[in-house]
Amino acid sequence: MTTAGSQSDAAVQFTRPLRLTFRDDLSSTLLSWLVKSFLFVVTFCSVAAVLLIFVFVIRQAAPFFAESRVSPLERLTEFFTSRRWFPEHQAHPEYGILAIIAGSFYVTITSLLIAVPTGLLAAVFLSDIASFRTRQICKPLIEILAAIPSVAYGVFAVMVVAPWLQKNIGFPTGTNALNASLILSVMAMPTIISVAEDALSAVGREIREASYALGATRAETMLRIVIPAAHSGILAAVILGMMRAVGETMVVWMASGNATQIPSPWWDLSQSVRTMTATIAGELGEVPQGTTHFHSLFAIGLVLLIFTFCLNLLSEHFIMQMKKPKR
């Protein structure tokens, strides 16, 4: 999960084998140059892919903003400030995604509220409390938690959690913000745990030992010393978990109820919300290609893409910060 940034320094000293003749030298240099550029081109595919994704999503989103009937500014204003999403209305379609963005935030923030404390504590357990053997058992467990397909979680949310919430807690609807958040928190936890554990382990042994030597208990050491020291890595963990939650589609589509509203009162998680991902997944399949509605869904995708891109840059920044003191 971590982004490794170190370079292979040691191999540099042995780049050339014994030099024989001029031709050998030339051909091997040429060959190595060729290989290097070939590999570079291959590697560049990733860059190209990112560019392509941006280009194609923007290309399909652009007609939405550049439609002749309304000025782009009006469109933008409506897009981000209106809560009314009626893309299929024949006479007066409305494309406001404020409520949809809010829905994404509702489920994301709520899931983080559950996942971050639990994940952090679990990371502490794995890095500082568990024995080697326990860790060997726990790691695959967490990996499995991460590997279970989101659609399977979605089925679980719809068929098991939703009826349970309705029956035992008495919510009017079982597919709501809380249901989606609960499942999302489980899905975000493995990411948070593994990145946070890396961050905690990256804090040197000396620091812990110094703290213990001063008579601090484990709780004090962890809470006052290690966690503050690892704060940037932990922030990165939170952000990566957030990305997972924001970008998750199937679970929220199946479990969040898909009502285009901002819950009122605002803390009422028993109400249905609709997220950006669910809107795209739910509507794109049925919308005719080339219509404004079609393009508006790409516009939502673009918002999502830009948002996760920024989060990603932020997490990278924090991970870099985390790595610096280590060297």
């Binding site: 809560r83 009314r84 009626f86 209305h89 409305e94 409520a99 939703a162 009826p163 309705q166 009017p172 609807t173 079982g174 597919t175 109820g257 898909n258 009502a259 285009t260 509203q261 901002i262 109400q271 249905s272 609709r274 739910g282």
Partner: peptide, 23 residues
């Protein structure tokens, strides 16, 4: 236009299932 609290489902069976499970 429908109100904001209207839930949207993607298919007839889903609508059926929602009503079936929600008093």
């Amino acid at each position: 236009k429908m109100a904001a609290n209207v839930e949207y489902v993607n298919s007839n069976p889903q609508a059926h299932a929602r009503v079936r499970s929600t008093p």
